[in-house]
Design a protein around this nucleic acid. Sequence first.
RNA 1: CGGGGCGUGGCGCAGUCUGGCAGCGCGCCUGCUUUGGGAGCAGGAGGUCGGAGGUUCAAAUCCUCUCGCCCCGACCA
Length: 505
Amino acid sequence: MTKEKTAISPTRAEDYSEWYQQVVKAAEMAEHSPVRGCMVIKPWGYALWENIQRELDDLFKATGVRNAYFPLFIPLSFLEKEAEHVEGFAKECAVVTHHRLEKGPDGGLVPAGKLAEPLVVRPTSETIIGDAFSKWVSSYRDLPLLINQWANVVRWEMRTRIFLRTSEFLWQEGHTAHATSEEAVERTKLMLDIYAELAENYLAMPVIKGRKSAAERFPGAVDTLCIEALMQDRKALQAGTSHFLGQNFAKASQIRFQSAQETEEYAWTTSWGASTRLIGGLVMTHGDDDGMVLPPKVASAHVVLLPIFRKEAEKGQVMEYTHKLAKELRGSTYNGRPVRVEIDERQTGGARNWDWIRKGIPVRAEIGPRDIAEDSVFMGRRDNSPKEKKSVKREAFVRGLGQTLDQIQDALFQKALAYRKEITCNIDAKEDFYEFFTPKNADLPEIHGGLAMSHWCGEAACEAGIKEDLTVTIRCIPAENEIIEGRCICCGKESRERVAFSKAY
RNA sequence: CGGGGCGUGGCGCAGUCUGGCAGCGCGCCUGCUUUGGGAGCAGGAGGUCGGAGGUUCAAAUCCUCUCGCCCCGACCA
């Protein structure tokens, strides 16, 4: 039996982690930098982030959120204001202690000019934004205050993975202040809905909306909501979070306002974020053994035109036809944005085609003299086999492109959804639960497990025990959960709902 | 931060055990051939072998230190 040749080696089944690295590299999305744990995001990958940014930004603004920018550096004393918060982040903070370099005895540069107060490179900005909010809010008429910032943050991670967990990453962090608890809770849910909308309708990534258990909650939050997506190795990825912070940070930062009843109150705040981690999620949701697969709505480019000519005499005609087609496509729109078109003039035969398959572009269109004679293009779709290509009349190609892209978008979502269903199951017996999450081959674990919907009594000890035994955690308590009597998967005590258990990134 | 693995041209790797001219495949450049496809032939460019120090007549290879990446834990978006 000969193995089908794949563009990426190893395949997902052979070595998922290595496959992931190879796809990121082969699709030219990002590479490692000389700085430990930090990546260089390359144009093909950064375009994804730009598209995510644009989409999220529109969704935020439609709910009244405005953008602002706060400092990269946070005074150490600010971080100390909220006890749980500082405890949660202290271990992964990068700290700036000096502000000047001087020539040292060996000729190298050494830090000089020690700072009076060390500055923490923001791991998140609740405290410094809280400080600003305390000045901006004095009356209930100043509320709600709805602010977002697009920024980089630094968390000094023990173990990094490109896009999924890097020391520095890009994200947005929204911060809001409200007059009432109810309104803040409402905002927390609204932003989670926006993340779910982005994930499902834009990234074609099915997600489960839910609430974190106390153990998984954001440090300092009263409640953490999240969307969880399932990757092709059956592990869950937290793809967005929205926190209800109660009055914890308002008290820490003195965000107070005078109410309509002339009483002084602490504001109720929220924060919510999504990061470049989503790009890693795209790779692991849609990528296949031939490389990246990009959902059209977020794709760095929608179509690549591949002109084919052999003799110089043909070149002029083919290139003219190609550029004219590109111009026409770029003048049309998809999902409210101009169609993004690449032209690859390299004459490397089939290898060129495979480059674009690896990069995951949704549509490839080959244009040679024979096509031009028939006023057609030879089209291939990334959601089909690489060999499956067909001749399409130029006019039909242009007119039908939007529909084609919609079909691909939908096909990717449906495929991901079907996979999630396949690896999700209700498990009620502890023995079955342990078997579900235990690989058959302990030395070289195969892809196993999935999402187990199982009963949990609510005790932290049960949650911790399962994490200890299986490295399985409660990803979330689903938002739209049925009340069903059952027995805790760990201790057997009474439980009224199932929660989502899985291994996670 | 503990345990393990790996750093050799853009990518994938051999060479390291046993020290002796830095190699192979793919990609890249040039030419010819081919011509609806992951092309063939010929020629060519590109690497202070992750870095520093040491042993030696001689180090990719041996020793010490160090940096980075990957995997498994602990921690986390």
